[in-house]
């Protein structure tokens, strides 16, 4: 993406929102790792700490939705939507495939649901590559 496009105010605002939300997500995971012992009961403390990364993920999706609303360039918006669609398709495909394996083959290791969002984020990177290959462009607003 060229500098002029990445300087779009919608991308700038998105990046400003993204940083504190990412900090909350990382802090939530760090707190969970530090404070929740293995095989902990699902009590108030455990649920509260686990909710923090969940709320951060909602915040991320809200920030992306705001960016799509505020982005006044229809072509850049198309690139962002395509990226999210590739990420969603990949995530659904991988988790459905693995989910069926888990249901019917007990020897297959369980994929913790926690990894659904990181897989989706990796899907965004794949979506960026798809945009680059099909359009020759990749939007740079959304990590």
């Amino acid at each position: 993406m060229d500098k002029a496009a990445s300087a779009n105010p919608a991308f700038r605002r998105y990046r400003r929102r993204f940083i504190p939300i990412t900090a909350a997500y990382v802090a939530g995971i760090a707190l969970a790792t530090w404070l929740i012992p293995d095989k902990a009961p699902a009590n108030f403390t455990t649920i509260t700490i686990a909710a923090l990364p969940g709320l951060a993920v909602i915040g991320w999706l809200w920030a992306m939705a705001r960016m799509l609303i505020e982005l006044d360039d229809e072509y850049l918006r198309l690139l962002e939507v395509r990226k999210a669609m590739v990420a969603t398709g990949l995530t659904m495909g991988i988790t459905s495939f693995w989910g069926i394996l888990e249901l019917f083959s007990p020897e297959v290791p369980k994929l913790p649901v926690f990894f659904v969002f990181p897989i989706w984020c990796l899907g965004l990177a794949v979506g960026q590559l798809v945009n680059r290959r099909t359009f020759g462009d990749s939007s740079g607003g959304c990590p």
């Binding site: 993406m1 060229d2 002029a4 496009a5 779009n8 006044d72 360039d73 229809e74 072509y75 850049l76 198309l78 359009f135 020759g136 462009d137």
Partner: peptide
């Protein structure tokens, strides 16, 4: 792009036929 209020990428994509504008 500046006259139209869009990105240079948009102009390039329209010119090369990769994207049809609204």
């Amino acid at each position: 792009a500046e006259r139209l209020g869009v990105s240079r990428q948009s102009v390039n994509a329209i010119e090369t036929g990769k994207y049809d504008p609204s």
